[in-house]
């Protein structure tokens, strides 16, 4: 019921308090990391017919009495420059990594550190999904965390979660962390 206008953001926050809490989550990562699969898995949809995302997908998921609006934006190199257009008013960042694609660990680390430096994501909690753990060649989450220097993040909450978007394993654990974190943050 809130009217929305840029100059009136402070009031809108209050207005939305009357309905259920809405959370804006942005889902990013390199191409082929499994972002769309993760999104569909969150929305309990079929994950067998997913093609590379050229634009973006949005799903709204109800969880812990909140409405999570998850924005999944394509990860191909030519699309990445558009990422920053979607970061405004973001409550949480989910970053997805293909744990079996060791050759691109450096590339994905660079993209993540660029995001962390974005003004719009200042202090925004980040959840990293070490995806594709169902593959035999997948690196463990702890190894990836080390490679990304996550322990140097002092300005925000962060968490790394091993998962497989295809099987759904670990996904719910990550969502639980998100909800707990958001609830704490908004209080």
């Amino acid at each position: 019921m809130g009217e929305a206008q840029k100059g009136l953001l402070s009031v809108i926050e209050k207005l939305k308090g009357t309905t259920e809490q809405e959370v804006r989550i942005v889902l990013l990562g390199l191409d082929n990391a499994g972002k769309t699969t993760l999104l569909k898995s969150l929305a309990s949809e079929d994950v067998n017919t997913i093609t590379p995302t050229q634009g973006f997908n949005i799903k709204s998921v109800a969880s812990h009495g909140m409405k999570l609006n998850v924005w999944d934006i394509g990860g191909q190199r030519k699309i990445r420059p558009f990422w920053k257009k979607y970061l405004e008013n973001t409550d949480l960042l989910i970053y997805v990594i293909d744990s079996a694609d060791k050759k691109r660990f450096e590339e994905t680390g660079l993209e993540l550190s660029e995001l962390i430096d974005e003004e719009n994501l200042k202090g925004v909690p980040v959840l990293i999904f070490a995806n594709k753990q169902d593959l035999a060649t997948a690196s463990p989450a702890s190894e990836i965390a080390e490679g990304l220097n996550l322990h140097t993040y002092r300005d925000r909450e962060w968490q790394i979660q091993a998962c497989s978007a295809v099987s759904g394993e670990g996904v719910q654990d990550g969502m639980n962390w998100i909800c707990n974190n958001i609830v704490n943050r908004k209080k």
Partner: peptide
């Protein structure tokens, strides 16, 4: 289509 185009934004 289910997927949104970047131009929508």
């Amino acid at each position: 289509e289910d997927e949104n185009k970047l131009s929508y934004t």
